[in-house]
């Protein structure tokens, strides 16, 4: 916990006034939503050999079972250390999500057949479109932030208009404007560069504000000390201010990178063979949309997790001066 207090308050879930009504509520909701009629419910009813055609009994049985499992699970997890609790809960929730997907009665044979192409073509395209866009967006954001903090009216005007336009228009519209609009001016642009350009411009605009806020968060004294030592404006910014601002900038920027990774699926509308485009088209041929969509989604999720881990690493690096 952030700045944990030194008081051992009774744990929320160890208070009978919390967990008894909580379990009761779960039981009630399961009953009300007719848990006995779900696929899981039917399987359980069969397992216990309950007579068909008594929905109330089935509902009661399933609700009771699930409530009991949850109660037991909470009781066990409560006894773990905080670290293990975190991992245990994470894994349990992930399993539930996978179970949810599993209940769709997917054809794993179909997935196995298609996943190779999805990875070698789709994932690779998604990765390089995102990676290039991330780099270009960061550069744009840095330029934008510096322009917004400058005392140059022209730079200010451009930067303000840029963030207003590209944060204001839907990304889908920006992609169309660049891919279909630029040729009207005589510049024919391919789908992939158009997608990269749109993603970079849009996310560069969002990140401009993040970078600006990060730079503004550094106290005035740092600027003054740097100036008093005779550092030039450029050195003050790059050697004193930005390294400190990075601590503030990185968490929201990691967010933006994850969002951009998934928004890169929008460039499929102009026919770029990235992950989402392939997931849709490959699924169409054999009416196996769900298989492909779920596979693509899980790949996005894994990529996001990788980005989260990278972000945590970078944060640690920039925090080292603040740690004792």
């Amino acid at each position: 916990m952030h700045y944990a207090d030194n008081v051992d308050y009774p744990r929320l879930l160890s208070r009978p006034s919390i967990y008894i009504p909580g379990l009761g509520l779960l039981f009630g909701v399961l009953l009300y939503t007719q848990a006995g009629a779900t696929s899981l419910g039917k399987a359980l009813v069969e397992l216990f050999g309950l007579a068909e055609g008594s929905p109330l009994a089935a509902n009661l049985l399933v609700a009771l079972l699930i409530t009991a499992v949850v109660a037991l699970n909470v009781a066990v997890v409560m006894r773990l250390s905080i670290r293990h609790q975190m991992y245990a809960v994470w894994v349990e929730l992930a399993l539930l999500v996978l179970l949810f997907f599993y209940s769709f009665d997917l054809s794993f044979e179909f997935i196995r057949r298609k996943i190779g192409f999805l990875l070698t073509q789709g994932l690779v395209t998604t990765l390089y479109v995102s990676a290039i866009s991330i780099v270009v967006a960061s550069v744009l954001a840095m330029i934008g932030a510096i322009a917004k903090l400058s005392s140059n009216g022209i730079a200010l005007g451009i930067a303000n208009f840029y963030t207003s336009l590209f944060r204001g228009l839907p990304l889908l519209m920006q992609i169309y404007m660049i891919y279909l609009g630029l040729p009207q001016l005589g510049y024919v642009i391919n789908a992939v560069p158009a997608g990269i350009l749109a993603l970079s411009l849009c996310y560069g605009a969002y990140m401009t504000e993040i970078f600006r806020a990060g730079i503004e968060s550094i106290p005035k004294g740092q600027w003054e000390a740097s100036r008093a030592l005779g550092l030039r404006p450029r050195d003050t910014l790059t050697r004193i201010i930005l390294p400190q601002a990075m601590r503030i900038i990185i968490p929201p920027t990691g967010n933006q990178f994850i969002a951009m990774l998934k928004d890169s699926s929008l460039v499929s509308v102009v026919g770029v063979w990235e992950l989402m485009y392939l997931a849709r088209t490959q699924g169409q041929t054999e009416f196996r949309h769900v298989e492909m969509m779920i596979t693509a989604s899980l790949i996005y999720w894994i990529l996001s997790i990788v980005l989260e881990l990278v972000q945590a690493r970078i944060e640690r690096r920039f925090n080292r001066a603040q740690m004792r």
Binding site: G221, E224, S226, A228, L229, G230, I240, Q244
Partner: peptide
Amino acid sequence: RKRVGMVFQQFNLFP
């Protein structure tokens, strides 16, 4: 600024 050094109330060391 090359000729003048300065010490601040809040130190202003680079953290």
